[in-house]
């Protein structure tokens, strides 16, 4: 399965709930305001950093760029993809579930 998260972990619990209910081995893509969850060095970084062994994490590059986040500010193990990469994940990983 592919889980999508589009909310900042500082504002909503979408990422927290996704990490509680996504089956291990699933792919998770952070996009829109969700990309803040992929940043290293924040008070919320551990949410993703501590689970890179359980899930494949992806973040949408155009949303990072729009928010002034450089790729070297991203948590290790999180892969940056473009919209085409997002489509590939949706095609390859099975059912898509959105956490809003």
């Amino acid at each position: 399965m592919l889980h999508t998260v589009n909310k900042s972990p500082f504002e909503r619990n979408a990422l927290e709930s996704c990490l509680r209910l996504a089956k291990k081995g699933s792919a998770i893509i952070l996009f829109e305001d969700g990309v803040y969850g992929a940043m290293a060095g924040t008070a919320k970084s551990d949410m993703v950093a501590s689970r890179t062994g359980d899930y494949e994490f992806y973040v949408l590059g155009p949303d990072l760029a729009a928010r002034g986040i450089a790729e070297d500010q991203i948590i290790g193990g999180v892969k940056v993809v473009d919209y085409g990469g997002f489509v590939d994940l949706a095609a390859d990983k099975g059912t898509v579930q959105s956490w809003l």
Binding site: E32, Y83, V87, A90
Partner: peptide, 19 residues
């Protein structure tokens, strides 16, 4: 919200990839 733009760009990318 950004949702409509994300959806549009996703649709466009999917079509470009032959879906």
């Amino acid at each position: 919200h950004q949702a409509s733009d994300s959806a549009y760009l996703f649709a466009k990318a999917a079509i470009e990839k032959g879906h």
